[in-house]
Design a protein around this nucleic acid. Structure first.
Length: 490
RNA sequence: CGGGACGUAGCGCAGUCCGGUAGCGCACCUGAAUGGGGUUCAGGGGGUCGCGGGUUCGAAUCCCGCCGUCCCGACCA
């Protein structure tokens, strides 16, 4: 890459990022249909690792994978009043098939509640059939007015969980439990801290009783909704006649939840951790955790060094200190005709967390030279016990990346009580998360959005709230019903 | 759909005001030297200057029309 082309993780230069980091790393590309996304084969594979980790977590909590059709009769969407109001404007509609106009148009799913609860209604008769816990990995289409690679594509890949329960409390517990599962994934795998909480009425999912969300802060201090979990109440059960006979003998509507995270998380990862040298991948999600770069001058050195590099690779990959299924993911870059410096930059751009340099000098000293991607710290590591040392560094990187992101978020979170004028100033300038009192009035939300473009991201969960609850609404001065987090969002 | 900008080599751009042989950087190919942080030198390939029309001896450049892309706003995971 040319020196004059500085990369930055800031939003204003995000397109440079796409070209240099994302496209070159083969994560994704533009497709001929504007606003769509391609995940390339032989790609760097971050999404694949995300998918696998989440899938394991769902299975461990009793969820099973299923698959439902892409095409849904338009009438299904109309069965739930709020749902159709929310999604009709952005659905793609299939009107013709087999050369003929269809009697009833089909929509391409923008989400699968309707078709799934239609099927659930046929599957559930008794309370013994509950809870029904399913997940689907699928693509959905939402015809947005404006798209942004990863963050808002026209078609996107996600997982959507859908469950049915016998009671409100059980459904509520499921929605909260998934919120926790997502948080675990985003914080401990993606090293991306999130604020969890409840969405306001105006921001909740179309058709839900309550929507919970996870909000991350990007490096431009804007919020990214990184996932949502909904308690759907009995809204869909009533619309789709999803009923069961209870233990008492009475017929009751089931209680549903739905929840999802998408390829948007890749965008979140990039914008949370990227720096001017490219991507930084947290080790747990890095398809390659360690790259070994052999260094040589003469042919004789070349043979010895490359052999040693492969031996090192084998030793690292064989190490079982992290458990038999979680081996170190190591790559040897022995490409000829490329200087080591050029290799360093390339792997740094792709975000490989740890680089090991191995040359004749290291062989003599029975050590290997390491360089961390996140901090760019460099230090020799003794060959004796090298695998355990490397694993320890990777663990450290994972934790440090999370800590650094959390510190950045906190340093751009305003927790002291500020005036609305000061708030406007902040939103015009540096942005950030502002914790403030709110009188609970949707009109106030609308006014603030109109005047500042900021919205209430969440009514935060207890752990995020201030020790002293705000007494008054920041905007109106009236008594506050909630403490909320205001921010501009993607 | 409104407001703005742009369209020249695979990518990023200059040249357009003021018409006169199609340029630069990166990437690519060949050769040599180099090799612990983006090597250097020499040589080389690659273009319907978005499309169509007009003005002119002559158009990337001026005029008219069309097409496309990006940014900002309304929508949103």
């Amino acid at each position: 890459m040319a020196d004059d082309k500085k990369l930055t993780s800031r939003a204003e230069d995000f397109s440079a990022w796409y070209n240099e980091v994302v496209l070159r790393a083969e994560l994704a590309d533009y497709a001929p249909v504007k606003g769509c996304m391609v995940i390339r084969p032989n790609g760097y594979g971050i999404w694949e690792r995300m998918q696998r980790a989440l899938d394991d977590m769902f299975k461990a909590t009793g969820h099973r994978n299923a698959y439902f059709p892409l095409l849904i009769p338009e009438s299904f969407l109309h069965k739930e009043a709020q749902h159709v109001e929310g999604f009709a404007p952005e659905t793609a509609v299939v009107t013709h098939g087999g050369g003929k106009k269809l009697e009833e148009p089909l929509i391409i799913r923008p989400t699968s509640e309707t078709i799934i609860y239609h099927m659930f209604a046929k599957w559930v008769q008794s309370y013994r059939d509950l809870p029904l816990l399913i997940n689907q990995w699928a693509n959905v289409v939402r015809w947005e007015m404006r798209t942004r690679l990863f963050l808002r594509t026209l078609e996107f890949l996600w997982q959507e969980g859908h469950t049915a329960h016998a009671t409100h409390d059980e459904a509520e517990a499921e929605a909260r439990s998934i919120l926790g599962l997502y948080r675990d994934f985003q914080e401990n795998w993606m090293a991306m801290p999130v604020v969890t909480g409840l969405k306001t009425e105006s921001e909740k999912f179309a058709g839900a009783l309550r929507t919970y969300s996870l909000e991350a802060m990007m490096q431009d201090n804007k919020a990214l909704q990184a996932g949502t979990s909904h308690n759907l109440g009995q809204n869909f059960a009533k619309a789709f006649d999803l009923k069961f006979q209870a233990e008492s003998g009475s017929m009751e509507h089931a209680w549903n939840t739905s929840w999802g995270v998408s390829t948007r998380m890749i965008g979140g990862l990039i914008m949370c951790h990227g720096d001017d040298n490219g991507l930084r991948t947290p080790p747990r999600l890095a398809p390659i955790e360690v790259v070994i770069v052999p260094i040589w001058k003469t042919d004789d050195e070349r043979g010895r060094v490359i052999e040693a590099a492969h031996r090192l690779r084998d030793e690292l990959a064989a190490w079982t200190g992290r458990g038999s299924t979680d081996r170190l993911r190591v790559h040897v870059d022995a490409r000829e005709g490329m200087r080591s410096g050029a290799k360093y930059y390339e792997w740094e751009m792709q975000g490989v967390p740890l680089r090991l340099e191995l040359g004749p000098r290291d062989l003599e000293k029975h050590s290997v030279f390491s360089a961390r991607r996140d901090t760019r710290e460099k230090a020799p590591i003794a060959m004796a016990g090298v695998a355990a040392s490397v694993a320890k560094i990777l663990e450290r990187i994972q934790l440090d990346m999370f800590a650094a992101a959390k510190e950045r978020r906190e340093s751009h979170s305003v927790r002291e009580r500020i005036t609305y004028d000061r708030f406007k100033e902040l939103m015009e300038g540096e942005g950030g998360f502002v914790y403030a009192g709110w009188n609970g009035d949707p009109a106030v939300e609308a006014q603030v959005k109109e005047e500042t473009k900021a919205t209430i991201r969440v009514i935060p969960d207890a752990e995020f709230r201030s020790p002293d609850a705000p007494a008054t609404c920041m905007v109106t001065g009236q008594p506050a019903t909630h403490e909320v987090v205001w921010a501009k969002a993607y």
